[in-house]
Every structure is written in structure tokens, then in C-alpha cells.
Design a protein around this nucleic acid. Structure first.
Lengths: 335, 335
DNA sequence: CACGTCGATGTAAGCGTTTACATAGCGATT
DNA sequence: AATCGCTATGTAAACGCTTACATCGACGTG
């Protein structure tokens, strides 16, 4: 592979000049520049990133840490992040950490070793319930800017882009109540980091409407269709009654729809169902699922925009909020 | 940030010895090794990858080129690839190319610039119909080993891991025929690279059973639920009749199920439906979708295994075939 | 006892860039 | 004509590591 010396020799200029051409420095005459470019093209030269990295101590790469890129929502996020990063001239270094805290710590260390220019953390269990467990993120932020997608953590060099999950759930719950529902089930998963935010919204809506919060109607469960289906059927059989279900994830909602069929409940007549993320799944069910869309595209674009702003030394707010929107389909009936 | 000289100084050995410790060289006494490790730990030292890369001309990184990681099947593939690569000690450099040929060419050039140790190409439109358009892959293979997932191309340094798509479709089509279906619709998308392989299987099955192939029953369409739904309803309204649908992608099958409902056809009584990829979507529909599972997990693991074997100088077959399996659910009824 | 061997460690060159600083050439200013 | 300043270009050091080769001491062998 040709290196900068080959180009230098062949084009009769010094390596410094070649390097200047490479970096688009203005202090090179048009003539030399063209000559050098011609030689580069002729020899099929590509600069060596390692050498470049050594000098500049950057590789124009952003690390994406994602708990599980096979989750439809996260897959979308990774996709849009990658697209947007590239648009801004950055490459993506992907890391799927899974849900184990220790793994996440290990991966984070690893990714920092790679000398990425910044980090984007995305994914369900982004933040541990115990704040002490999040120290590793603060540690990372002391090296490079860290962008949290759908999670909030305070600290120098840590920025967040979040949806108004609390508000969205509060609003949809309120609408369910206004449409006459009184016993609203709330299902959430541990993997969904903002599950607690959403729960907060749920409780707020109940309170604002003078409905007492029934612990039996709040369920933490794994993010799995079949499991949810059986849980709900079981609850129903054992006598629990409910007339609406709000879920922190579409998959749970799919399970709820299946369960309704098992129980002989009509949707949305006997049971209204609301999902979250507005994923492809919402279009597959019958009836089609009403879901809260958190604009993963906007979310991703904003995360990248903010991060690159930080790179350029701009000051940005520590927290940026994106509004999400309810996409109404067939599993609900309210104004 | 501390560098190798700091460690050397602090531990009273030369940088060569430090480097040896770093690389696990056997020619370091246990005592020195421990001392050096202690100092590294104390100073929080992490080797600089660029410097390392400069010397070794490798960064233990594999480039993953994926047309669209928001596609559920590809998202899964990317996930498993990343997991397996890490297990083998490699990092992943992700690149979502989209479906434009020119983009793919650009990205490939870019990714090679990064000095990856190898490439894994995954994704629907992996291979262009026109063989000349695939030259850029051969070009890439002249630099580093290239692994094709679900696509075949001959050339030095190009390896493939594929499912027996042709056989799987042939087999399922035959079973549909045996169950009494005569007018079987075949739907495929341009994005699905193996759509043509699958089509071949479809035709083979018809031929083997003495059924004439009706061009009207073979449709190329975009990979979209709503679009498929409307197309089928339209065809039905305009008089086309069919009693089974085989699809090259689950999303098409979801559209078909929706269309059946529109047309008042019962599934699987009037219409049997088969999807492909056995994605999450298959579990969401009602009735649940029978789908061909191409073992993305095995496929990914095999791709990574083969590639790392190549890295180690082992000889591997240019083409490895994985068997796929039919997962029967509610949209079909045959033995 | 001289010598070869071997294992542990050190020295220094090299990897391919970037860039601060030096230099050369040339027109403008005095 | 000497000086200044500017632009285009060159020189060389630095980035942090790997590794071939050199060195050194200890030990076994004839």
C-alpha cells in the first residue's frame, strides 16, 4: 500500500505538502494541489487511519452502546444514529452490552480504549435503579462527552435527549379515564429504562382524576409476548378485572391483545389497549395497536446533533426534551 | 493519560518489557510481570490503539456492512454478529449502507480506509442482479477477507454462509400442493437478495408436481405491510384467485393476512400463508404466522466462526450452507 | 575453565501521519 | 539596493507502540 512518502516522491513535493493537501489546508497552490491529487488517485492512496489517529488522537468515531440491538425500537435507534453520525462525518463503533451491569461496565471500558470521540448510550436498561451503579457512566464522561438517549443522569459531560414519557402516559391514561375506564392496568418491563417515568405519568393521571391507585393493577414483567399473554389470562381467571391496559412496550401490548382473545374480551369494547414505541408490531396485530410514538428518528437525530455540537465546543442544554405523540389505531376508542 | 514510558519509568523496566507484558509474551519473569501490571493498574493505563495499530497494522475490528439495520431480520443479524465477534476478540464497526449501489460502494471504500481486518456483508440487497455491479465486493476482497451472509459470489477471499432458501421454499410449496392447493401466490421483494433463490424453489416445486407456472401469481413488490395488503385486495377484486401465499419476507405475509380479512377469506381454510424469517412479527398476527426460520443466530455464529478461521490462516470452504426450518403456526394446515 | 546456551531484559528503529518551525523566493516599500 | 512581509514549501520532531537485534548474567558441559 502506498504511503505519504510514495506520493511525495512521485509528485516531487515534500510529505508536508502532501499532508496539507490531505487535510485541505488553504496554504497550498492550486497547481501543486492538483498534481498531488492526481498522483494519489493514480496510486490508489488512502491515508492510514492509525498514523492519523496517533497524531490527532481522534478517529472521528462515536461509540454506540446499546443493550440489545435486536429489540425493534433499539434497532431503529441504532440505524438512525448511524445514519446521522455519518451525515456529520463520524463513524459508528457499535457495542451491544446486554442487560448485565458488569458487562456494561466492561464494554464501556473497552470502548473508551478505542479512543472514541464521544459516546451515545441507548437502550432500555440504560440507567440502573441504584444511582451508585451509574458511576461508571460518570467515569466515562470524564474522558469523553456522553449522550444518553432516553435516560437522564446528572454530571459533567453527560447530556440527555429524552421523550416526555411521563407526560405521554399521563395524557393517554387521562383520556382512557375520560372515556369511562376505571380499572386501568399498567404493564412495564425492567428492560425499559423509562418504565418508571411512565409509571409516574400513570399515577399522576389517576390522582388527578380522583382514582385510587390499586397495586394489583401495576405489573412488572419480562418483555415477552407469550409471557404477558399468560400472565393476563391468569390474572383474569383468578378474578382480577380491568377495562384498559397501558404498556411500556409494544410487545407487552401484543401479549395483552392475545390474552383478550383468550379471555373472550372484545377490543376496544371490553378492553382498550395502548402500546409504546409505535413499532412495526403495532401494525401486525388484529385489531391494530394504538401506540405512543416517541419519534425515534427525531430522538436519534437530536442526540447526534447535540453531541456534534459539543464536539465543536458549543454549549448545549444538559437535557433536551422531545415530544412524543399518540398514534391512534383500533385498540382504543376515545376522542 | 499515561503512556508506556510512564509505566516503564515507574516500574523500573524498559518499555520493551512493558510492551511484552501488554502482549502476554512468555519471555517475562513472573516477578516483573506482576510489578508492571501493578503499576499499570495504579496509573490507570490503557494502551493507545492507534499506536498499536500503527505497529501491527490491525485493530482487531471487523466491519459489518448492513443495508438497513432497522429491518427486524437484519437487526437480529447485526446483534448476533456483534456478540459473536466480541466472543472471538473482535470489535465491530457498523455501517448501514441503505439500498443504493453507489452508497454501498462509497461505504465500502470508507470502511476499508479504517483498516478493518475483515468484512461481513449482510442484508437484503447484498448482491446486485447485474454481476458487474458486484465488482466492488471483489475489489474489497483483494484487501481483506469478505464474508457474505445470505448471498453468494465467487472470487478469491470471498466466503459465503447461506441458508438453503431454495430448498426451504421448494419444500414448503410442495407441502402446500400436497395439502390440495393449486394456485399458490409467490410474493417477493427486491430488497431481499435471496428472493430469486426462493423463487427458484417455488418454481421447482410447481414443476415437480406438474403444475404450470402462472406469471400472474408471481409478484415483485416493496417490503411493506400496507402496500402488500392493498395489492392483494386489488388483485382479488380484479378477479385473480389464489388459495395460498408464499412470501420472501414476514412483512409481506402480514400484509397478506390483513388482505385476507379485507377479502373475507378465512385463514388457513380459504388461504394458507407462509412467511420468511420467523421474526417477531410472526407472533403478532392473528392467526399467528407460519414462517421459515433461517436461524439467524446460527447463521451469524457461523459467519463469524468462518471469518476468524480465515484470520488464523485456516482453509475454509467458500460456501457454507445452513439448513432452515419451517415453524408451523396457525396460517397453514398441512402434515 | 573456556565456551556455548538460554532466558530475561534493554536499545533503537520503524510504523505513517501531523505540524511547529525554518527557509526560500518574490514583490512591495523605503 | 536593502529591507520587510508574505506565500508556498521543506525539515524534522513527535505521537505511543512493537519487535528485531543486542546484551548480559547464569548455568551446564566437555
Amino acid at each position: 500500500m502506498p504511503n505519504i512518502y510514495d506520493i511525495s516522491e512521485r509528485s516531487g513535493v515534500s510529505i508536508a505538502t502532501v499532508s496539507r493537501v490531505l487535510n485541505g489546508s488553504p496554504k497550498v497552490s492550486e497547481a501543486t494541489k492538483n498534481k498531488v491529487l492526481a498522483v494519489m488517485d493514480e496510486l490508489g492512496y488512502t491515508p492510514n487511519v492509525f498514523a492519523r489517529g496517533l497524531g490527532l488522537n481522534t478517529m472521528n468515531t462515536v461509540g454506540i452502546m446499546c443493550s440489545d440491538s435486536s429489540d425493534p425500537f433499539l434497532a431503529n435507534a441504532v440505524y438512525y444514529l448511524e445514519q446521522n453520525l455519518r451525515k456529520h462525518g463520524y463513524d459508528s463503533f457499535l457495542c451491544c452490552t446486554g442487560y448485565e451491569l458488569q458487562n456494561k461496565k466492561n464494554y464501556l471500558e473497552l470502548i473508551l480504549t478505542k479512543r472514541v470521540d464521544g459516546l451515545i448510550l441507548v437502550g432500555s436498561s440504560l440507567l440502573e435503579p441504584n444511582d451508585e451503579d451509574n458511576l461508571y457512566i460518570k467515569e466515562a464522561a470524564s474522558h469523553v462527552p456522553v449522550m444518553l438517549m432516553n435516560g437522564v443522569l446528572k454530571g459533567a459531560g453527560i447530556y440527555s435527549v429524552v421523550c416526555d414519557d411521563c407526560g405521554a402516559v399521563s395524557s393517554v391514561t387521562e383520556r382512557l379515564i375520560k372515556s369511562g375506564r376505571k380499572r386501568i392496568l399498567y404493564l412495564y418491563t425492567a428492560e425499559s429504562g423509562s418504565g418508571l417515568q411512565k409509571l409516574k405519568g400513570y399515577k399522576e393521571a389517576l390522582k388527578a382524576n380522583g382514582i385510587k391507585c390499586d397495586k394489583d393493577l401495576i405489573r412488572l414483567l419480562p418483555c415477552d409476548i407469550e409471557n404477558t399473554r399468560h400472565l393476563l389470562s391468569g390474572l383474569y381467571t383468578s378474578g382480577l378485572r380491568f377495562d384498559a391496559v397501558v404498556c411500556s412496550e409494544d410487545r407487552l401490548a401484543v401479549g395483552a391483545i392475545k390474552a383478550a382473545k383468550d379471555m373472550g374480551l372484545s377490543i376496544p369494547g371490553d378492553l382498550q389497549v395502548v402500546g409504546y414505541n409505535n413499532s412495526l408490531l403495532a401494525l401486525c396485530t388484529d385489531p391494530e395497536l394504538t401506540s405512543i410514538d416517541n419519534h425515534v428518528e427525531t430522538l436519534s437525530a437530536t442526540a447526534v446533533k447535540c453531541l456534534t455540537d459539543v464536539f465543536q465546543g458549543k454549549r448545549i442544554p444538559a437535557k433536551t426534551i422531545i415530544q412524543n405523540a399518540l398514534v391512534q389505531r383500533e385498540t382504543t376508542r376515545f376522542q
